[in-house]
């Protein structure tokens, strides 16, 4: 359930490729867990990065400390769309983890990129 929002992005991979948008998933999962669960079992094809020490997640102020279901420090859901210079052009910091960004919203926002 914690990555069900990613599925809708995977389904739209063609559209993101056409729009020139690279999708990158970031979580505390180790590369091993990502390979086993996200690539092999779930069949995702975009890039995954591991931040088990929460260094980047902390720098982005997205640490969800002692999350109740896992009991661990994890990343809270958030999405950032950067232009090719690395400037943030659009973002969502959801207030409810069932309502993360949808691919349609991102594709719409991507139209405004230079």
């Amino acid at each position: 359930m914690c990555h069900s929002e990613l599925r809708s992005f995977e389904k739209n991979m063609n559209k993101f490729n056409e729009a020139g948008i690279r999708i990158v998933g970031i979580s505390v999962d180790t590369p091993e867990k990502t390979r086993e669960y996200m690539l092999q079992k779930a069949g995702y094809t975009f890039t995954f990065l591991s931040d088990p020490e929460l260094e980047t997640i902390r720098r982005y102020d997205l640490v969800h400390a002692r999350e109740i279901a896992s009991g661990k420090d994890i990343a809270r859901p958030a999405e950032f769309l950067l232009d090719s210079s690395g400037t943030i052009r659009w973002r969502t910091i959801t207030e409810n983890f069932f309502r993360t960004a949808r691919p349609e919203q991102v594709l719409e926002a991507a139209k405004a990129l230079p």
Binding site: I21, I23, I26
Partner: peptide
């Protein structure tokens, strides 16, 4: 690095942008 992600081509063309999705985990 983030810099690599911003440069590395998609289908032989430089990317227009990068979407960072922070998610809770594989579970």
């Amino acid at each position: 690095t983030l810099a690599q992600l911003l440069i590395e081509p998609i289908n032989n063309t430089p990317p227009k942008g990068v979407l960072l999705i922070f998610y809770r985990g594989y579970w």
